[in-house]
C-alpha cells in the first residue's frame, strides 16, 4: 500500500491489484475514518475525500494504515440478477476477437459471477470483473455516438451495463431491461462497488 498526495483535502491509496482495492474498500466502507466524505475505488487505487473542518490528512492516513483489508469482499456482497437478451450488435464480432463463437461467449458471460469493482464514466456505470473471466476485449476502433440505455457490454477485462443512453466504445453483446440508475429509487445506483452480479440469459426477442 502506497499513500500518494492528492491536494489539501484528499489522499490517494495505491495498491497492487484490483483484489487489494476491493479488500481495502470493503474495510473502509464498513468503518469509514472520521471526517471522510467519499471513498472512491478504481482499478488500482482508493481515493479518500475529506471534510477539512472535521479531520486532517495525517489522521486519515494513519486510519488507512491501521485498516485491516477485508478479503471476503468478493464473495460477501449483495447478489443481483441481471436478465440479458444476448442479441447485441457486436456479439459475433466480439466472439470472433476472442476466438470462440457467440454461444460460447454467452455461456462464459453467464457462468461467471461478477463483482462491481468500481464506478465511473457516468452515474451508476459499474465496471464489473470476474475472477474466472480472463479475456481482454479490445474497445471498438470507433466509439458509437449513441449506445442505448440497458446495453450490456465488454471492454478490457470488464463488463458493464449502460445506465442511460450515452456515447460509448465498448462491445455490445446484449441488453437488459434492468434500469441500472434510477433517481426515483433508493439507492439510485444498483451497480455499486462490492455488489455481486449474475447475468441470466433471456430468450432473444
Amino acid at each position: 500500500m502506497r499513500l500518494l498526495p492528492s491536494g489539501s483535502t484528499a489522499v490517494l491509496v495505491e495498491l497492487d491489484d484490483l483484489d487489494e482495492v476491493l479488500a481495502l474498500y470493503a474495510a473502509l466502507v464498513a468503518a469509514p475514518p472520521e471526517g471522510v466524505t467519499d471513498i472512491v475505488p478504481a482499478a488500482r487505487t482508493v481515493l479518500l475525500l475529506t471534510d477539512p473542518a472535521r479531520t486532517s490528512l495525517p489522521a486519515v492516513a494513519a486510519a488507512v494504515r491501521a485498516t485491516t483489508p477485508d478479503r471476503s469482499g468478493r464473495s460477501s456482497g449483495e447478489l443481483l440478477e441481471v436478465p440479458v437478451s444476448y442479441d447485441g450488435e457486436d456479439l459475433a464480432e466480439a466472439a470472433g476477437l476472442l476466438g470462440c463463437n457467440a454461444a460460447e461467449l454467452v455461456q462464459r458471460h453467464t457462468a461467471d459471477e461478477w463483482t462491481v469493482a468500481f464506478c465511473g464514466f457516468a452515474p451508476g456505470f459499474g465496471y464489473l470483473t470476474s475472477a474466472s473471466w480472463t479475456w481482454d476485449v479490445p474497445r471498438r476502433a470507433t466509439p458509437r455516438t449513441r449506445v442505448p440505455a440497458g446495453a450490456v457490454a465488454l471492454a478490457g477485462p470488464f463488463s458493464g451495463v449502460y445506465p442511460r443512453e450515452s456515447p460509448g466504445g465498448w462491445q455490445l453483446i446484449g441488453r437488459t431491461g434492468l434500469v441500472a440508475f434510477d433517481l426515483s429509487r433508493e439507492p439510485a445506483a444498483l451497480l455499486r462497488p462490492g455488489v455481486r452480479v449474475r447475468f441470466v440469459p433471456e430468450p432473444a426477442r
Binding site: 466524505t37 472512491v40 475525500l49 468500481f118 451508476g124 439507492p187 462497488p193
Partner: peptide, 11 residues
C-alpha cells in the same frame, strides 16, 4: 452531493 462518488456521481 458529497457521499455518492463511489457510484459515479460527483459532488
Amino acid at each position: 452531493r458529497p457521499g455518492l462518488a463511489a457510484t459515479g456521481v460527483g459532488r
